[in-house]
């Protein structure tokens, strides 16, 4: 029987530590599949961040660096400017990218660094056990917004829209992995972002709406529904900025 589906070559055989139902595994696969599709595994350097995806360096077969919390775009800048012909991506969560690392992502985009950013937004802090994220929705209950997120806890930040105002940002798209159709679409967007880097077109970011069933305290299926019904209305899907060269 012909093989229809297999693990991408760019993922190692190490068992992932992610909780059951977490969509990090799907997003890792999409990134690895993009690397396989473009045949760039040997010249890719990934930057893992701090948060649930901190161990990403164990899961990708390409060279990896682990950055301090929020600084992955700065680390990626150091790698890319030193080795301009390598492909460099960061893999960051919402706390990492939209809270502690706000300055680094804004200025990497402003400089138009020729890197690809995978921004996983699940509206909560996973690794530390369910605290409020910068992307936690208005009214959402977390361990540090126990009365639901209010004005005094601050409103959620739409990073993709914010970064799209910067001249240096060339491609920004928000995708979701809440159902198979969207997973396929997300995979295509990630490939496009890497292709742009290969052509030297500059900064690209794919924001992926993701789930954290453990800390949302929902079943995996309910968490996917929650993304569809609650996150997508606030974080609309689609291309937010496309300055790519049409090929």
């Amino acid at each position: 029987m012909p093989l229809k589906f297999k693990k991408p070559d760019s993922l190692t055989d190490i068992a992932m530590h992610y909780c059951p139902g977490c969509t990090h595994g799907i997003i890792h696969r999409l990134v690895a599949n993009a690397i396989d599709t473009l045949g760039i595994e040997g010249k890719t350097v990934g930057i893992a961040s701090v948060g649930c995806s901190v161990f990403a360096y164990n899961y990708f077969t390409c060279d990896m660096q682990q950055a301090s919390h929020g600084r992955a775009p700065a680390v990626a800048t150091g790698v890319k400017r030193s080795l301009p012909d390598r492909i460099v991506f960061t893999y960051q969560g919402d706390g990492d990218l939209a809270a502690i690392g706000t300055a680094e992502i804004v200025h990497a985009a402003a400089r138009g660094e020729n890197i690809t950013v995978i921004f996983v937004n699940n509206a909560i802090y996973g690794m530390t056990g369910g605290q409020m994220a910068p992307t936690t929705l208005n009214g959402q209950v977390t361990l540090t917004s126990p009365y639901g997120r209010r004005q005094q806890e601050g409103h959620p930040v739409r990073m993709s829209e914010m970064l799209s105002t910067l001249d240096g940002a060339r491609y920004i798209e928000r995708v979701s992995v809440h159902n198979p159709a969207h997973i396929i679409k997300a995979g295509k967007s990630i490939i496009k972002a890497f292709e742009m880097q290969l052509r030297g077109e500059g900064f690209s970011m794919i924001e992926v709406l993701s789930t954290c069933p453990t800390n949302l305290k929902m079943s995996p299926v309910k968490a996917l529904k929650w993304v569809e019904n609650n996150m997508i209305p606030f974080y609309p899907l689609g291309i937010i900025k496309d300055g790519s060269v049409k090929v």
Binding site: R71, A74, V79, R81, S82
Partner: peptide, 16 residues
């Protein structure tokens, strides 16, 4: 953009 970013860029470059 900051000294924090600068030292982390150095981390990336040194690692490269």
């Amino acid at each position: 953009e900051s000294e924090i970013s600068a030292i982390n860029m150095v981390y990336g470059a040194a690692g490269a």
